[in-house]
Amino acid sequence: MQTLYRRLLRLMPRLGLQVTDLGPGTAVVSRRGRRIRTPLGPGADLLVRNDGRYSVSDAGKDAWLVLRGRAPAAGSPAPEWTGVPLGDTGARLLIDRRADADERKIQLAAAEYLCSQHVTAMLELYGVNCVFDVGANTGQYARRLRRLGYTGRIVSFEPTSNAFARLRDAAAGDPDWQVHHCGLGREDTATSIHVGWKTMNSLLPPSDYGRDRYPRFATTRTEQIEIRRLDSVMDEALDGIKDPRPYLKMDTQGYDLEVFAGAGVRVADFVGLQSEVAVLRLYEGSPPMSEAVAAYEAEGFDITGMYPVTREAATGRVVEFDCVMMRAKSAPAKD
């Protein structure tokens, strides 16, 4: 004898509803579209509208990766995914095992992601409400901050004409993103910058090591630019912000310490900073990492994160780090 439950399930299709029976006492009722039950493993099933549009890969204990797209044809190799638990955080890193063929690439990609997450966390922890984006290029850093949820003011500085035009366009729809067509340095002046090196335009000439590493340094042209001191632009940048808590990001291809020096005594206003520091110098006259970090530490900043930006493929040596530093005494008091 049919139970009332079974009789109701049989009635559903007559009402235009699709029923997927998952087992005793369990069914899924949907308004439209055929649902198909795809077994994942012991005690787990996937319910999809059309199993031909999804593929499922085992990604470790009690974890599966569901990809939109047709499942591999019979006899063809399935994607090989592995799930790596990230300590006791509850997070899991999913890696296509083919990525192991280029360890350096995956390590640098992971470092970039972790650096962005760390910076976002520090901006929130220290209550940062204005980010000085020095060496903004076309606005990549600022756009990343917005994607990661930062809603405070951004003030970007880019001296080269082509990059600034794109930066201005990127910021056009963001009322709290200011852009300035100038560079920052130790003194107010006009000078020339090497351009045509994509994101690596610099006021400094390339070192012998830099020329060997990057063919783009073989040819160059220069452009006249304006340089201003950081302390001369701070009042304008922070205008209208109650209790300013600024953060200084510098990516100026070997010129970061000159930018920092231009802050003068007002460097004390910053709760944190981010600087690209060089282990292997790409530019003639740029400071080594030890000198740059020591200068920042002397002004009260402490390292909270170091993330490799570039590494040599042949030796594994790090060329540059993104160094994140915060002023510990500026951290909010614990309740």
Rank of each mutant, 00 (worst) to 15 (best):
W81R: 00
R35L: 15
M306C: 12
D256G: 03
F301S: 00
S330R: 12
G285L: 10
T26D: 11
Q18P: 00
T26R: 12
D102F: 07
K329E: 15
L280S: 11
D251Q: 08
M234N: 00
G41T: 13
D88N: 12
L167E: 02
V324I: 13
V259P: 00
A109G: 08
R32G: 11
V131R: 02
P85F: 01
M200Y: 09
L123V: 10
T38M: 13
Y214N: 08
R97H: 02
G52N: 14
R37G: 07
E320L: 09
D239A: 15
V28F: 09
L167C: 05
P77F: 06
D102L: 07
T138L: 08
I36K: 12
Q224P: 09
A73F: 09
L145F: 12
R14M: 13
V324T: 07
G43Y: 10
A142Y: 05
Q107S: 10
G254Q: 04
G75Y: 06
A170L: 06
M250F: 05
D302A: 15
L282I: 11
D45E: 13
T252V: 14
A172N: 04
N129S: 04
G183V: 07
A136K: 03
E187H: 05
V48E: 03
C115K: 11
K334L: 14
M1W: 06
A91H: 08
L203E: 01
G16R: 05
G264M: 01
R6I: 04
L257K: 02
L93Y: 07
A295H: 09
Y209D: 01
D243Y: 00
Q18M: 08
P72Q: 03
V318G: 00
L273P: 00
D174L: 13
T199H: 11
P175T: 08
R68A: 14
D102E: 12
A294Q: 08
P79Y: 03
T151W: 09
G23Q: 07
D302F: 10
G33T: 08
R146L: 03
R229V: 02
V265D: 15
Y296F: 15
T89V: 08
G23Y: 12
V29I: 15
V267H: 08
L125P: 01
L86C: 10
I303F: 03
W197S: 10
E223F: 12
T304N: 09
W81M: 01
L8E: 09
R92I: 14
K105I: 08
L9W: 04
A101W: 06
E312W: 04
A110W: 02
R68E: 15
A333N: 06
D256R: 01
L11I: 08
F260A: 01
D322H: 06
A171G: 09
S290H: 13
S192C: 06
Q140K: 10
E276C: 02
K249F: 01
T252N: 03
A331I: 05
T220W: 08
Y113P: 00
L230Y: 02
Y307H: 14
V277A: 11
G139D: 02
P244Y: 06
Q117S: 08
P159G: 04
L145M: 15
A295R: 14
V84I: 14
A333M: 10
H180D: 06
P287E: 11
A261K: 13
T3G: 12
E312H: 10
F157K: 03
V324A: 10
I303E: 09
